[in-house]
Amino acid sequence: MKAAEGAIVDARIPPILPRIPIQSDKLVRPDWVSSKPRSSRLLWLDKNENLDSELQKVTQRVLASLDPTVLCTYPDSGPLCRKLAKAMTVDPEMLVLTAGSDGAIRSTFEAFVAEGDTVVHTVPTFAMYPVYCQIFGANAIGVEYQRTESGPQLDIERLLWLVENKKPKLVCLPNPDSPTGTTIADRDMERLLVATAVTGSILLVDEAYYPFYPKSVVGLIKYYPNLIVARTFAKAWGLAGLRIGCAVGSKETILFLHKIRPMYEVNTVAVAFLEKMLDHEVDVLESVNRLNEGKRYF
């Protein structure tokens, strides 16, 4: 083959290689070139978004009220951080804004998981857990949901056994989980919190579906410095495109996530939008009720 003009052809030049985990052929991401946009003629019920038209009336109004300078200025997320912390009844230091809950999950891996560390996650679960295990070179151990008459069921005893015996660096537990829709009983969550605290494992409870499922462990953070909660505004709040969420944990733990924060962790449009949208929690809860009603109708 003829080399392109100007190309450096020298057998002595070593190949460009990424970190070892990234070299793996097993790490494959969805095709980013030939993806097909979804047809606007169809109803989109494939990605667990919230397309409730009543809520969209509210978000449209908020969007229209934004100062256009949000487009040409860098974000200052302090005021939003403080307002969100107040809404969640936590201290602002206990919170870091992220690009959706996916961003919170990634930051948790980045801050805590070194190559070779053990990470326990459920199977099946949100697609990025196994991907981040690969990206960060973790020794991933999956706990498979069992098929039962009443739907998938998690073997909590196995999960606890793994925590106690493998002493993982990180345990990832969406509650509710996706795609199973299953939740962890309060008693089991407590056992898991205690077990992970004893082994020094981070327990990442992913509450992406809050408040469709209104139970939360945010109130338990004060007892468990190893607990990180991931939240998003993509689901109930109907803001999947805005890419904003947060991680909540003890001040000491969240400080580590701040240390690895990018220059601007979220964009100015998202910050300005969410600051205003937080005043519309009632509209969000009404939307959640409408969607839950629709679910019962089906």
Binding site: D52, P124, Y145, R147, Q153, P179, G294
Partner: peptide, 20 residues
């Protein structure tokens, strides 16, 4: 779904009754 625990099930995101 390819996973045994959900094989044979289809999934719809929730929407309003009117849309369903």
């Amino acid at each position: 779904f390819g996973d045994a625990c959900l094989a044979g099930y289809s999934r719809f995101s929730s929407t309003t009754t009117e849309e369903f």
